[in-house]
Design a protein around this nucleic acid. Structure first.
Length: 117
DNA sequence: CTAGTGACCCAAC
DNA sequence: GGTTGGGCCACTA
């Protein structure tokens, strides 16, 4: 099948992901899976990571509000530390390099039922 | 088209 | 509780 594998075109999914991330309210965090689902791409959490890595500069995107399913920062190196600082500044409470998705997670509002392992 | 990679996720040891 | 491995699929060269 003729696939448009032309270089430079890349994924149009990126803008969508950026918009979703931009939709994250302050004081809240979203997981890669959540964003992936938001753009109608269930299971493609990696794509979100790709998009964030290819983040365009000049646009205000709260990428620091995006964490992995465990509520931890995946970005290694300095970026991770910066992200923690930013989130803490937003009012997010970090528990040993982890945030409580029950309270800070986007769409968090689940009662009681804990879904973990 | 093939091959390699990855800001992930989950199950198992 | 942390560590290892495999899988998934999109994107790049």
């Amino acid at each position: 099948m003729k696939r448009k594998n032309a270089p430079g075109m890349g994924g149009q999914s990126y803008p969508r992901i950026w918009e979703a991330v931009r939709s994250i309210p302050r004081g809240r965090v979203a997981t890669y899976g959540q964003i992936a689902a938001f753009v109608n791409r269930p299971g493609h959490a990696r794509l979100v990571g790709y998009a964030l890595h290819n983040l365009p500069d000049g646009v205000e995107i709260p990428w620091h509000r995006v964490v992995n399913a465990r509520g931890a920062i995946s970005l290694p190196g300095d970026g991770g530390r910066s992200q923690r600082e930013l989130l803490t500044h937003e009012g997010i409470v970090f528990e040993k390099n982890r945030v409580d998705l029950r309270h800070y997670g986007w769409q968090a509002g689940r009662k009681g039922s804990s879904r973990r392992r």
